[in-house]
Computed example of a mutant assay.
Amino acid sequence: MLSLYNRAADTDGRPREPRILGSNTVRLIRSISTHKRYSAKSPDLQYSYTVEYELKALPLEKLVRAAFVHLRSRAHSQQPVSCGVSVSSWGPARRPISSGGSVTLRPQDQWTETDITPHVSPQSEGHLSLGVQYQCAKDKPVKVAVGRGKGRRRTRGQPTSPKTQLRVPALLLFLEEEEGGAPRQRVESAITAARSVPRPRRSNELGNIGADIPNYTRKNSVAKNQCKLHSYRVTFRELGWDHWIIAPHKYNPRYCSGDCPRILHYGYNSPNHAIVQNFISEMGVGEVPPPSCVPYKYKPMSVLMMEKNGSIVYKEYEDMIAESCTCR
């Protein structure tokens, strides 16, 4: 999951462009039961796993795709792996579903995935049983030097130890979960704070009332402490969240601070309401405060975290990093 996270997000947790996952949430589902079986004829090359998963309380109606992650065996960590793969399951109508393909892992690859979306359905009744069969190519003999004494050396073929080349596969569910569907209330409260300000309408879409107020544009002045974006980095350890947030380690939400100018020009993207409020404040009509410097646009953030049940989840949260400021 950490490898998947590093592919999808940069060191600050911002999703890379273009987004490669195709969904805002990826859940690693742990199996509740696993059975391993070898072929009697060739125990080293043909083997299969039957894996069962509990899918209750998961929003399968939001499923974008499902994938089996094929994991390299530690005994073959530096060798190329080539295996045929056959996946089977039972559909909602109790009819068998089968799919096939192949798996190739280069020496530097630790895992690869196979799409198994047809095997996962919202009508799975909260339980999924998958069978996967591997048929892998034989290891090539390795030539090693042997001999006794000086000047006497010869070679012989020594095959690698007979080990299964792929471990029990893992199940990944790619989901487009609704915003606010976080598994922990602590995440909910943090995101609620980041969402406290709705995005205003762009002031130049339908015209700006400032252009119609007599003498409004003549009162131009530059604020000494001008409204702008500021950087602020904090670690999740400082927030006390490092025991359940795996990555990223640091967070730069950024914030808006400063004085709003007397003339809110188009560059501030202020709504007409803010322009009128600023004018009323300048005129001293009633006790109306001037507009405030607040975020205008936001960027999403990717988080890799651990749930209470030990599952690992990749999730993209919208509106987590301030990108620009406005006055309103």
Rank of each mutant, 00 (worst) to 15 (best):
R7S: 08
G13W: 04
R14N: 07
P15S: 08
P18T: 12
P18C: 13
R19Y: 04
L28G: 07
S31P: 09
T34R: 10
Y38M: 05
S39C: 06
S39G: 13
D44R: 03
L45A: 00
Y49G: 06
T50Y: 01
E54P: 01
L58D: 05
P59Y: 06
E61V: 12
A67S: 13
H70S: 05
A75D: 14
S77V: 15
P80N: 14
V81M: 02
S82V: 07
S86D: 09
S86A: 04
G91A: 11
R94D: 08
S98D: 12
S98E: 14
G101W: 02
T104Y: 13
D109M: 12
E113H: 10
T114S: 13
I116W: 03
Q123A: 14
S124C: 11
S124G: 12
E125L: 06
E125A: 08
Q133A: 12
Q135L: 07
K138L: 04
D139K: 04
P141C: 13
P141N: 13
R152G: 04
R156P: 07
P162T: 04
P162W: 06
L166Q: 05
V168M: 07
V168S: 02
A170S: 14
L171I: 03
E176V: 00
E176A: 15
E177N: 12
G180H: 11
G181L: 05
A182D: 03
Q185I: 04
V187C: 02
T192V: 02
P198I: 09
E205P: 00
L206Q: 05
G210E: 09
G210H: 06
T217D: 10
S221D: 08
K228H: 10
Y232V: 03
R233D: 12
R233E: 14
V234S: 08
F236R: 00
E238V: 01
G240S: 13
W241E: 03
H243S: 15
H249A: 12
C256V: 08
D259Q: 15
I263R: 04
H265V: 09
S270P: 02
N272W: 05
N278Q: 14
F279V: 05
I280G: 01
I280S: 04
M283G: 00
V285I: 12
G286K: 08
E287F: 11
E287A: 06
S292N: 09
Y296E: 03
K297A: 10
K299N: 15
M301Y: 02
M301N: 07
L304R: 00
L304W: 04
M306S: 07
S311T: 08
E318H: 07
I321R: 11
C327N: 09
